[in-house]
Design a protein around this nucleic acid. Sequence first.
DNA 1: TGTTAGCACTCATGCCCATCGAGTGCTAAG
DNA 2: CTTAGCACTCGATGGGCATGAGTGCTAACA
Lengths: 339, 339
Amino acid sequence: MSLDDRKFRILQAIIDDYILTAMPVGSRTISKKGGMTLSSATIRNEMSDLEELGYLDQPHTSSGRVPSWKAYRLYVDRLLQVASLPPEESARVKEIFKTRMDQMEDVFAAAARAISELTDYAGVLIAPRAGRVQRVQLVPITANTALMVTVTDNGIHKDSVVPIPGGLSPDHLYMISNVLTERAQGHTIAEILPMANELLRDMGLHRAFFLSLLDRLARQMEPDSAAVVVGSASKLLAQPEFSDIERARGLLSALETKDQLARLLSARSQIEFSITIGPELMLDGMQNSSLVTMSYSLGGGAGAMGVIGPSRMQYGRVLGILSAMRQALNEIDEKPGKG
Amino acid sequence: MSLDDRKFRILQAIIDDYILTAMPVGSRTISKKGGMTLSSATIRNEMSDLEELGYLDQPHTSSGRVPSWKAYRLYVDRLLQVASLPPEESARVKEIFKTRMDQMEDVFAAAARAISELTDYAGVLIAPRAGRVQRVQLVPITANTALMVTVTDNGIHKDSVVPIPGGLSPDHLYMISNVLTERAQGHTIAEILPMANELLRDMGLHRAFFLSLLDRLARQMEPDSAAVVVGSASKLLAQPEFSDIERARGLLSALETKDQLARLLSARSQIEFSITIGPELMLDGMQNSSLVTMSYSLGGGAGAMGVIGPSRMQYGRVLGILSAMRQALNEIDEKPGKG
DNA sequence: TGTTAGCACTCATGCCCATCGAGTGCTAAG
DNA sequence: CTTAGCACTCGATGGGCATGAGTGCTAACA
């Protein structure tokens, strides 16, 4: 017994219905659907086959069928099409970045929030991974600490507090910044670290200091959990699958462990879009959830954004929204000063 | 009829019990308590009086009594004492900041998360308001944008992207930064804005540019929602009052509107500690919640941290934890380089 | 051989109703 | 003023029953 065309069409109809209603789907429901000319009895036989093939589950005898994650996988692989947004929604997406934003962080936060608002699921986003070093600058804080600000060519900047040797004036720091910038400019951190020896050779006096700066630089460029933004996770509580409070708690606390999300998203920043379903995520508390991501590019760097919601997700619609958002993010590059 | 000593002791016993059990408290429960030598009938009479006085509510006839917010108010005003932490918990607080942290943000995030972990409620924190300007520095990003980094004397730093006139070299920007630093150093933003005219008089060519810098400076120093950190809000879902999913959703989405929290917390950063109960918060979705805050000081600036949970909260314990956390935050000042 | 009508069966759901028990208010006696 | 006693209230619990959505199976049909 194999998955012939008719079985496939029936499975599709079941998934479509379940996505909308979140209720087990019965044979009569499918039989009455437009386009389907088979009796409920025939559908029943097919459904029984589909269950045997692993595409459907039955919560209990004499209840309707529920799609398994394998069914969703088939569904998104074979017949998913990106839904085009109604004009008022795509207008809303375009509006988001019209307001003035000083910092990249504001852009990311706004995007994640907007994804939540539009999809009614939880929006997540990771900032692009830092690219090539554009400039490194030390800003004095106290007599023995400075702020090391690193700007990369994709508009990302990071800062961290570094201890500095005593007796360095702001002008000293500026000169050191310039030397550091000169050496590091245009390089990724992977390229900079091997240069350490060469750099250090010239540095007579302040070897240890320079080494600590390089160390910080390397850490700044790593993808980190601070780059992850979660939109309105509370939206998820409106979904019927989370009327069970324990399940809701599991998912929400998974959303709060940012480094887990950072791993998921940064692994997907090189992939145009991805759909990962329940068990495929291999994470506690997310067996019944799906992650839909789409990469975006901003300032030459690649980031990823996505949606976390129940496996019973409107995948086509979500992809449509993410795709509109990607376009909106891309357009930010074109206008200077970020809005 | 007034609130005599006996009524007060009975009320206290009711609140103590309700805080632990979250169940309406009956007269027999109180009568059997150690220290109480009255019969349940007498307690009933007193409880009836307490209800009339507005300190107790009765969900329905023939159920036990539940404290009203007025009762909690009295409770915290008159008989609250800060619970001292068991040694292993205060040890845990001390451990939190032992790990290496590059940025103030990491410290704040760790503190908020720790408050959640220890209390089982949602931890919230606002960074200290920026103090006096220590240094302003422009770091070039592109030919016509720069990052304006402002460091204040309390260790807070902020950055924002500013457009710059074409043709300014990094050295130019450095010089401008030095001028700006010289004028602004040691002043609060409230003091800087009136100086604008004087500053601008000297600036011949780049008036407009300087004006925009001052504008940004002013906005950077405002308390902003980015300074708010929320710990593990999902902890709240374990509380029995949030088994009602709608109530949980209301509170969680209130926790997601950061500017509201920013207002609440920054208003409390000058107050040693505060307890605000349900209706006193005057916020949708928080009628049944309480906010307990405690201010802290870090680098000479005052911030506030706190806990949001059900009104039925272990106030004494929460204050104990916050108080330990305040001490731990204060100690960060003493060791350089933030751990 | 595939399709379908028919039928017995299952199981969740909702409803009614009786029971239970925690808790109350009131009264009268101490 | 306190308290024992008692009738009463009302939510919670659980059994019994009808309902209905849904199934699997069988037998007849094209």
